[in-house]
Amino acid sequence: MKRRAFLKMTGGALAAAGLGSLVPGAISPTRAQDAATGQASGPAAATTGAPEVVLVENGEPVALLQAALKEMGGMGKFVSRGDVVVVKPNIGWDRPPELAGNTNPDLVAEVVKECLNAGAKVVKVFDRTCNNPLRCYANSGIEAAAAGAGAEVSQIDESRFKTIGLKNGEAVKSWDIYQDYLEADKVINVPIAKHHGLARVTLGLKNLMGVMGGQRGQIHNPFDKKLNDIAGEILPTLTIIDAYRLLMNNGPSGGNPADVKLAKTLIMSPCTVSADLTALPLFGLQVGDLPYLQEAVNRKMFKFDPARLNVKKLSLS
């Protein structure tokens, strides 16, 4: 390459970087969270009579979702016309749906459809995977299902992370978050409930690690603080926990069919902590068994008081 061309290129890149940080309003780390808070907190929820958490049992993923949404008052309560919506499933592992390593693809597809029906301009689906992303997207069945439902499914582009400050950070003061996530108007968090060696169980809060950049392994110590430092800053609009198949052991990657338990359950809440708390009995656990969830409760990262959580349970049959 000629020297002049090289100089142009470097200069161009620098200019681009500078411009990016100048564009006003391009990136607002707390938009998703604000939207969530504004949507369904406290009195508003009470007056409309919608429950704080819905737990539906005994159905197929699509039926479970429909029932829960009906209780909540429809997807239109969370997604407005023209919104850019991110649906964040767990696509972490190169595993087929039967092994319960990833979110159920039918559920993801139905969530995407609901968002589009509610008027979302675009629905984006992505996850920063643990195994090879091509394999995870394909073999989880999520890529095909979500794209078939009309979502924009893309792999994480490592150059699109943005460092955000964590104002309540105790163990970390800043972390990289995926730009598309930060820029979304609404975020629907769709984790699968499964066993995890360190965390005991991974649910809604931990699923948010899928939009965190950098060396995620470092979040593991001290896990309880770092996870909440970061997750607390990027809480989603709505959390839908896929508990259709539960991975009871050897998680989060799984692989042993004997560890998969068919629970045919779904939990939905605009509050991630509340959703996570509601899922614990599925594993026979209490909040004290999960130090990171206890920490989230202690930090009051919830929208609804765990002591008097209004959980609506119903069973389809």
């Binding site: 643990c130 195994n131 995890h196 060696g197 360190l198 392994g217 593991h220 110590n221 001290p222 896990f223 050897n250 989060p252 990657s253 799984g254 692989g255 042993n256 560890d259």
Partner: peptide, 14 residues
């Protein structure tokens, strides 16, 4: 202090 990133990723069914 806890870590277990290795254990989390070990792909074996057991």
């Amino acid at each position: 202090t806890d870590c277990l990133v290795c254990e989390e990723h070990c792909p074996l069914p057991e």
